[in-house]
């Protein structure tokens, strides 16, 4: 089967704008809200959201990056260990509304680990989940997104690949690819 393009540059820009407006609708001027991107792959998507939000609201929205490697439930069960990434959370999330941001939601295990990792920075008033791609019917845990870019049907033999300009690609594209 061929690789399938699910979001090209133009569609992605529309999707990101739409998701940002959804956020503004519920979070107003973001006085009590912070964004938390999941390392490593949610980082670039989270930055796009932050940039677009700042354009809409006219001021900078706090964004941190959370690494979940030390909180994963498959440590010592994986074939090869994962390398940790930097956590950069320069604000306290105590009593804040937190929007967790990741590129792809699959089994939900990363989000579970992220909820665990996040607690080390305080007790948030509310936590929401924003994902660019929701792979439907694949969850291992009762976790669902509050904001979804696009929901897709996929097979276990496929994965979702995000290509961003920051990684050296000519344009942003999101693909469903077959695992090699």
């Amino acid at each position: 089967m061929q690789d399938r393009l699910i979001l090209d540059q133009q569609q992605l820009d529309i999707t990101i704008s739409r998701m940002c407006h959804q956020l503004v609708e519920l979070h107003d001027d973001f006085a009590d809200t912070v964004l938390l991107g999941l390392q490593p792959r949610g980082k670039l998507f989270a930055k796009r959201i932050q940039t677009r939000l700042s354009e809409i609201l006219g001021h900078e929205i706090p964004l941190g990056f959370l690494d979940i490697t030390f909180h994963r439930d498959d440590f010592r069960r994986r074939e090869s260990p994962l390398k940790a990434n930097a956590t950069e959370v320069n604000f306290i999330i105590e009593e804040k509304k937190v929007v967790l941001i990741d590129d792809v939601l699959y089994t939900g295990r990363s989000v579970r680990a992220a909820l665990d990792a996040m607690i080390a920075f305080g007790r948030p008033a509310k936590v929401e989940l924003m994902v660019l791609i929701d792979r439907k019917y694949t969850r291992h845990l009762p976790i669902e997104p509050d904001y979804t870019g696009k929901a897709v049907n996929t097979l276990a033999s496929q994965n979702v690949a995000a290509e961003w300009r920051e990684q050296g690609f000519e344009s942003d594209n999101i693909w469903i690819k077959h695992k090699i």
Binding site: F70, H71, F75, I92, D116, A117, A120, F121, G122
Partner: peptide, 11 residues
């Protein structure tokens, strides 16, 4: 991790 309010991970 050691500079966080909660300096512990479950690894």
């Amino acid at each position: 991790v050691l500079n966080r309010p909660i300096k512990k991970v479950p690894s």
